[in-house]
């Protein structure tokens, strides 16, 4: 493992451009230490995965970055400004989709803009564009309960994209969809990272998924939560999406991550 970590340190001097910086963040729930003095950097325009066993605080960290939870100490810097709460520069994609069951796809996608007070015609035009982008054209007036799990998460994704935030926070976004849909999502996500100039922070518990989609993987370990190591896969992304899963480096990294996490899985 050391060689990839080393490669990361060499390739990225401290002066790199970070969209999000986590500095010394701690969070306790009563006597339980969810996060302890955690520091992490998220390079702009790249996808960083937070990977670890359950209870390692990855979702807690993501919600602190989102401003949904308050850290007990430490700070979150987004685009040079400290985070005090939710803001328009970040958008969240939820594990359980968090769609309004009583609202159509169109209204759901436009809901972030609705809350920002954007006029109805404008926000719906924007929502329609993103509905088309995620491949749901024709479903604008369907309701969430009429869609499959995968389509629902596309709605959640379109909602996050439509507010045009620079940072996208994805909390295990594909864990509630079936395996095949999931693979399609992963490929689409790679295209999204390549095409949109956004920073992605991606929480997952799937090692293969993390290695497949990430520019940078932060391995978190629990009790107390800490960053165990940061891995930057070097070059298999360039070989095309069809070749990633059989690239030797991909397979090595998957194995090595499993070797370091194995002991923490109950």
């Amino acid at each position: 493992m050391s060689q990839t970590s080393q490669a990361f340190v060499d390739a990225h001097p401290s002066a790199q451009d970070n969209a999000v910086t986590v500095r010394g963040v701690s969070k306790n729930y009563g006597a339980v230490e969810a996060l302890k003095n955690m520091s992490l950097e998220f390079p702009r325009g790249q996808l960083t995965s937070l990977l670890g066993p359950s209870g390692c605080g990855k979702t807690t960290l993501l919600k602190i970055i989102a401003g949904l939870l308050k850290a007990d100490s430490g700070e979150i810097i987004v685009n040079g400004k400290a985070v005090t709460g939710p803001g328009p520069n970040r958008a969240f994609v939820f594990q359980d989709f968090a769609l309004l069951p009583w609202a159509s796809v169109l209204r759901n996608v436009a809901f972030g803009l609705e809350l920002r007070g954007v006029a109805k015609s404008e926000r719906e035009a924007k929502a329609e564009k993103y509905i088309k982008d995620v491949g749901l054209a024709g479903f604008e007036h369907s309701f969430p309960h009429e869609l499959s799990g995968g389509m629902r998460q596309r709605v959640g994704l379109a909602r996050a994209l439509s507010v045009d935030a620079q940072v996208l926070l994805l909390d295990e976004p594909f864990s509630a969809v079936d395996e095949q849909t999931r693979r399609k999502f992963q490929e689409d996500l790679l295209a999204l990272v390549a095409n949109e100039n956004k920073t992605f922070i991606f929480v997952t518990h799937s090692i293969e998924e993390a290695v497949y989609v990430s520019d940078q993987i932060a391995i978190l370990l629990p009790r107390p939560s800490r960053v165990h190591e940061i891995i930057r896969p070097s070059n298999f992304r360039a070989k095309g999406i069809d070749n990633i899963r059989r690239d030797p480096e991909y397979l090595d990294i998957v194995d090595e991550i499993w070797a370091s996490l194995r002991n923490y899985v109950e």
């Binding site: 919600k63 989102a66 401003g67 949904l68 939710p86 803001g87 328009p88 970040r90 958008a91 969240f92 939820f94 594990q95 359980d96 968090a98 309004l100 809901f111 972030g112 609705e114 809350l115 920002r116 507010v163």
Partner: peptide
Amino acid sequence: SLVEMAISFGATPMDAFVKI
């Protein structure tokens, strides 16, 4: 998570009450 969603998109307490 519905409530969190609304808050993360900047909902005011009144918004959350009426819309969620």
